[in-house]
Simulated scan of single mutants.
Amino acid sequence: GGRLFARMGASVTAHARDQDVLTAAHGLVVGLDLESEGKLLDGFPLRTPGERWEFEGTPVSDGDSVYVLLRYHDEVRSQFHVASYSIESGRQRWQQRVCAAGMPSRGNWQEQTHYLLTLHEGTLFCNPGSGVVASLACQDGHLNWIVSYPRTVLEAGNARQTGQHVFRDLVPPLVDGSTLFCAPPDSDRLFALDLSSGRLIWQTAPGIAGDAKYLLGVVHDRLVASGDRLYWFDVYNGELREQFPRLGSRALDQPRPDPAGWGRGLIAAGRVYWPLEDKIMVFENGSEQVGWQRKQEIDLAVRSATGGNLVPLGNRLFIVAHDRLYAFQNDR
């Protein structure tokens, strides 16, 4: 407790082939002691092993170690490694190569990604947008299993052939019970894997909920995903049970639905909170015949706020918008 870890610095995780990596700025990982007014912990910040290495998303920690995804890039391909560092000294304990793959830019432009790890009961799960999902042991980085899935090709400059799934971000694998749910940015499918073996349990058909950018969680045997729309999937077979609004999916060059999502929602007390640009819609589960119903709307415009990613903390709700942070308190 009392420690904060963050990835900071340059946001580029893969440089264009014509860029000089020797002069490029790089990201770093900081560790702060919140009980000492944010003083840097010993051994921090963490720096990448070399000029072609970058840290990916925000680290995760179990209180003893901090774990982070590393990316090594050449002109065309990227390698992804998971590394463990001591919280007390910043010393690297282990580094495990997970995979190598061609990436969307193919070295033609910079990439800015933020792939996140999932930490669950001594195990790390990663899905770095490279056609694989992997499970690693926190103790020594041993690969428990690694599975592949069909990737979709990014058609640069062709909006009709590019699905909205390429914009998935901040969507680490989601653990619920003995199941791992995944929404990769390089696949137009959602799928569920067995947590212990990586065995495929189900996957959606191509294009189903292609605009879904976030996995919010599981409630009442439903996996809730959101993007332009809100989706409820059967956790056991992956069937799409409900969506809001009810109209079908769209291509990138088509208008957004009305209403349309505006950031990552959340699940709390059995309810789904879904942010729009000027309000938050609250859904509750009714009878089997009625399904999920809109029960409340929280007006953000009258509070001089906008939608964004929702983060609960105690009796407060934080909204992380594109250029500001809002905090609201529940007095009821």
Rank of each mutant, 00 (worst) to 15 (best):
R303N: 05
P259Q: 05
G265K: 04
Y236R: 13
Q293T: 14
G265C: 05
F283K: 00
D278Y: 12
G248D: 08
V290M: 12
L300Q: 00
F244V: 03
W274D: 00
W262Q: 11
E297A: 08
M281S: 10
A301L: 11
L240P: 04
E284Y: 00
E288L: 13
E239P: 02
E284K: 14
E277K: 14
V272E: 09
I298H: 09
Q243E: 07
I280K: 00
F244K: 07
S249Q: 11
R256H: 10
E288D: 14
K279N: 13
G248N: 03
V235N: 09
L240Y: 01
G265W: 05
Q289C: 09
S304K: 02
E284A: 15
D299L: 07
F244E: 11
E284F: 04
V302D: 12
E288F: 14
D258P: 03
D299Q: 00
D278T: 13
K279A: 15
R271L: 14
R241I: 10
P257R: 06
Q289Y: 12
N237S: 08
A268R: 14
V235Q: 07
A301C: 02
G238E: 09
R294F: 05
M281T: 13
L266Y: 01
G263N: 01
P257Q: 00
I280A: 04
P257V: 07
W262V: 01
D258H: 12
A268W: 10
P257A: 07
A251C: 12
L266A: 05
V272Q: 10
D253P: 03
G238V: 10
R294C: 11
R250Q: 06
Q289K: 14
S287R: 08
V272S: 11
V290E: 15
A269V: 03
P255R: 02
P257M: 03
A251N: 11
I298V: 09
P259A: 08
Q243K: 08
E277I: 11
A268M: 15
L276W: 02
F244L: 06
P275T: 01
S304M: 09
Q293H: 01
N237Q: 10
Y273M: 13
R250T: 11
I280D: 07
P255D: 05
Q243V: 03
E288Q: 12
G286D: 01
A301K: 08
